[in-house]
Design a protein around this nucleic acid. Structure first.
Lengths: 212, 212
DNA sequence: GGCTGAACTGGAACACGTTCTTATACTGGC
DNA sequence: GCCAGTATAAGAACGTGTTCCAGTTCAGCC
């Protein structure tokens, strides 16, 4: 019911539009409505319930418009994940991280985020599976998720100028965290399993090393 | 073009049939033809090229039969992955693992398997993405992959009766390995990146700990 | 106020995973 | 060799992601 310039040059976007690519307020609003609709549907029925026609209808947008903003269901869901992680990172950067050691800080951040995701299993399932299924066309978005995660974890480690090694450790922890999240989402690991494995991983990577 | 008892009680299998569920030789053969067809198609065009109609045709089997043996495309590809990992494990258990330390043994096994998968990028893409996308209905198969990986890595560590901690370490390394494989498959990491990250991970988990 | 081009709408069309139906072929038991 | 039951074949049918098209609406410019 409107039309403004810019969501893409004709021919279709190569990847989801970033927020600041959108000029007009109406377009920002459409984009937000789409992401909100996506999350509402995901929250209710998981990955399968995020049906493009349903998202379009709920966001009050034509199907073609939805595809103009997000070139695929996967882009859509991974972008939603980026938004969520971005918000989590903001919250994180606003509050001090408890814990004496790096390990404690990291575990605090991990379990906080894990719990937060576990509060909405269906939504988590939808975003996680999309993230894992993403192919090369979603590389930019997936990379962005990785960056956010890295920032969260290096922040949790209490370093402001992370070295390459710090980043590498953060990446390893992030990999393990995501793996366990997937295992939890697919019912192959309980919440307690996840928590135990994360503790062990962090201990091995950041904690004191006992004799072997 | 035949018919023997058993591939499933009527109503459809809950998960892919295991090899030993199949009684008749003709059925074993069908199953093998299906998996071979799957891998041939995957090898040529990756995940998208593994189309159920194409698999059925190539395996010389009706579409309905294909679905009787494997209840979904994901089951099919993850089962192919199990077969591959099983073979890799067999090969592994037949040859001694070089390297003085645990870290060296693990790195040897990791890089050997990584190279082997990288030799057929499309096939790896297909199997990896199926594995990552798998939902709860494929939990058994996914768990089996995890078990195989764990056995490969504990063998690489040179322990025959792995302790819980050994297994946990193997799981962490497996998680990181798979993450990096996915990153490679989606062109977010080069082969060298993968190799560097694995080295670092193994060093952190199994190697000498330097001052921090 | 009218023009132009891009964005949006509504809906048809298409592809592929999955399910279902009907007929035929095979197997094991008698 | 015949029967009963199940597996398979062949293909139609359905759902959902994705693409496409014709028509409409809007923003910026004269």
């Amino acid at each position: 019911m409107t039309a403004e310039p810019r969501p893409a040059t004709t021919g279709g976007p190569l990847s989801a539009l970033t927020e600041d690519d959108l000029g007009s307020p109406a377009q920002r609003d459409r984009r937000k409505r789409i992401l909100d609709a996506t999350m509402a549907l995901a929250s209710k029925g998981g990955f399968d319930a995020v049906q493009m026609r349903a998202v379009a209808e709920r966001a009050d947008v034509a199907l073609g418009t939805l595809y103009r903003y997000f070139p695929s269901k996967i882009h859509l869901l991974v972008t939603a994940l980026i938004r969520e992680f971005g918000r989590a990172l903001e919250r994180l950067e606003r509050t001090p991280i408890p814990g004496e050691t790096q390990a404690e800080g990291v575990l605090y951040v991990l379990s906080r985020n894990t719990r937060s995701l576990q509060r909405d299993p269906q939504l988590t399932e939808a975003m996680t599976r999309a993230f894992m299924f993403a192919d090369t066309s979603v590389a930019a978005e997936v990379t962005e998720v990785g960056r956010l995660l890295e920032r969260m974890l290096t922040a949790a480690m209490g370093v402001e100028e992370p070295s390459e090694e710090d980043k590498a450790i953060a990446r390893v922890i992030g990999d393990v965290w995501l793996s366990n999240l997937v295992a939890w989402v697919t019912h192959r690991a309980s919440a307690e399993d996840v928590s135990n494995r994360l503790e062990l991983t962090v201990r091995l990577l950041l904690g004191p090393r006992e004799a072997r």
